[in-house]
């Protein structure tokens, strides 16, 4: 490819990176919020995201024949948010809370539990889908309405194309992120979440029930991941019980990139990571003379994660916190 050709696909690449970035951002918020209140890397969050995507497919499966696709999609968002949020709350209630009750100081115990939950949920969803439909490689239906190129009306500036579903990803993400921002910064619940994140026992003394707040945090993070799951499925169509892992680990990287525990940081980290990955996928092969192609794009997230953790562990936007003894 010539330089001119490479430059000509740059705007489209950036736009696709933006879509991916918004999905990562919404998942990253779940990691960052849970880490904020519990100091736990909720490994199972990627499965909450996957459950959202699978739930979306189930909604389309039952309502997909006829009917307004926008209405069905709206319903899919709501059901996926509800299911994912519920599962997240259940996971917290059944797996993490007993550990907290025991008061073990070992950070590895909750993390290993979270890995266990993640593995369990993957195969549980697979078993449910296998029993229900006798298949677990699922496909989002393709609607002409959603595939219609909105930019063609505007004369495709810079040769860009953006399908309706891409526009939906951007709009829904911005809406959800704005809603979350309002919730965390302007409501009583948000204040309580911030208080628990700052100091759980003091928050308890101020009349906040930390267990309730933690539960709510999981509900909010889980619902966001559920919606993100539907968006992911809508754009990338193929969903299996194991497709949560890769986006999950990248969203976690995004959360670390922005400074874990930091909500605006998670959004910024998600967008940066989405762009980097898409750019890497498009240009890596060219830059290395074809020796290392797009297959290394997925490794990129890990390398970024390692570099960030080594050189700026507080993330791009986090504050430096010294180790408490």
């Amino acid at each position: 490819m010539s330089i001119a050709e490479l430059l000509s696909i740059l705007p489209q690449t950036l736009l696709e990176g933006l879509l991916l970035g918004f999905v990562y951002a919404m998942v990253a918020l779940g990691y960052t919020m849970v880490y904020g209140v519990l100091g736990l890397i909720n490994f199972a969050h990627s499965e909450i995201f996957m459950i959202g995507a699978v739930t979306g497919i189930e909604v389309f499966r039952y309502l997909g024949n006829g009917g307004n696709p926008y209405l069905i999609l709206l319903l899919a968002f709501i059901v996926a948010a509800a299911v994912s949020g519920t599962v997240a709350v259940l996971v917290e209630r059944l797996a993490y809370r007993p550990l907290r009750r025991r008061g073990s100081k070992n950070v590895l115990v909750p993390l290993i539990t979270a890995i266990g939950v993640s593995f369990l949920l993957q195969d549980l969803v697979r078993a449910i889908e296998a029993l229900w439909h006798n298949e677990f490689n699922l496909q989002y239906p393709s609607y002409d309405t959603f595939n219609y190129d909105v930019l063609s009306k505007l004369g495709s500036p810079l040769g860009l194309t953006l399908a309706v579903k891409g526009l939906i990803v951007i709009l829904v993400s911005i809406l959800m992120l704005a809603g979350l921002n309002y919730l965390v910064n302007r409501t009583k619940l948000g204040k309580a979440i911030r208080a628990v994140a700052q100091d759980m026992s003091t928050a308890g003394l101020m009349g906040i029930n930390p267990d309730v707040i933690i539960s709510r945090t999981f509900l909010i993070g889980g619902s966001l991941a559920g919606v993100a799951g539907v968006l992911f499925g809508l754009v990338y169509t193929n969903v299996t019980p194991y497709s949560g892992f890769q986006p999950g680990i990248k969203a976690f990287t995004a959360a670390v990139l922005g400074g874990i525990g930091n909500i605006p940081g998670a959004v910024a980290g998600g967008l940066v990571l989405g762009e980097l990955e898409t750019l890497g996928g498009t240009y890596l092969g060219f830059l290395t003379g074809g020796n290392f192609g797009s297959e290394y794009a997925q490794v990129l997230a890990f390398l970024i994660l390692i570099l960030i953790l080594l050189f700026r562990p507080q993330g791009l936007f986090g504050q430096n916190v010294s180790e408490k003894v």
């Binding site: 539990t113 890995i115 939950v117 993957q122 195969d123 697979r126």
Partner: peptide, 11 residues
Amino acid sequence: YERFVFGLILI
């Protein structure tokens, strides 16, 4: 379903 089994063991 080995993941289910390992996951359950861990939890």
